[in-house]
């Protein structure tokens, strides 16, 4: 796995400029609105972890995958490394954003609400794990080019479905549902249930990706 790891880091060097631009943007947002952390955290962790998708695309270019799979590692190792790599990238983006928020709060001499930040950090972490769990099997199944389109279509479909449900529920029904949702969110067990759900989804995603790549022909 060490060899694959090195390969992906070398591929990432091309994205250095993008990373620097992202960090500058994060610093700018934090300076303007320090307590808007949830957006920045989500944005940075998801964007960082999604860079693993670029490494899929680069591996695939000019039939590169065919050559890669003649090297001494299994397809299972290849997939596992991608998940780990995506997680590490997400954690780096997540950590950098929290560090940047801390630095900005020091410079501006503002108090960060650490309690909120902790909760927002956990939410952002969960969101990026889910995104990674969805994006990787899509990339493997559809390839780099089609995969991007399918991923965008999936996100749009979920958004439209959500908006559709909300517009379908009018008046009392809508208020009732909102009340029920808020009741659910207030329960203590909800955090553990969501966490367990995310872990399950992630494991299923890894297993499905391994199944997909083992079936694939190059």
């Amino acid at each position: 796995m060490k060899g694959l790891w090195k390969k992906d880091w070398y591929l990432m060097k091309e994205l250095k400029k993008t990373l620097i631009l992202m960090m500058l943007l994060v610093l700018f947002i934090l300076f303007t609105e320090l307590n808007n952390m949830i957006f920045v955290l989500n944005y940075m962790t998801i964007l960082s972890s999604m860079m693993v998708i670029n490494t899929f695309a680069l591996d695939e270019q000019k039939n590169g995958n065919a050559f890669l799979f003649t090297l001494p590692f299994s397809r299972k190792t290849y997939v596992t490394e991608k998940y780990l790599f995506g997680m590490i990238l997400g954690i780096i983006g997540w950590g950098l954003t929290i560090a940047a928020a801390f630095a900005v709060s020091m410079i501006k001499q503002t108090d960060l609400k650490w309690g909120n930040l902790g909760l927002q950090g956990i939410v952002a972490f969960g969101v990026f794990i889910v995104m990674l769990g969805i994006a990787i099997p899509i990339q493997i199944k559809f390839g780099a080019e089609k995969g991007r389109i399918v991923l965008i279509a999936a996100v749009l479909a979920v958004s439209f479905a959500g908006a559709g449900i909300m517009s379908f529920l009018q008046g009392e029904k809508r208020e009732q549902m909102m009340d029920q949702m808020q009741w659910i969110l207030r329960q203590k067990w909800i955090g553990a249930a969501v966490g367990a759900g995310i872990v399950c989804l992630f494991v299923i995603s890894i297993l499905y990706s391994i199944h997909l790549i083992e079936k694939k022909e190059y």
Partner: peptide, 25 residues
């Protein structure tokens, strides 16, 4: 192996390929 089509990513240098291969073989 040599394949008629297919190699390491074109973004890599031979030195980087060597580092990867050194970890694999």
């Amino acid at each position: 192996v040599v394949l008629s089509e297919g190699n390491f990513s074109e973004r890599m240098t031979p030195r980087e390929c060597a580092q990867v291969l050194n970890s694999l073989y």
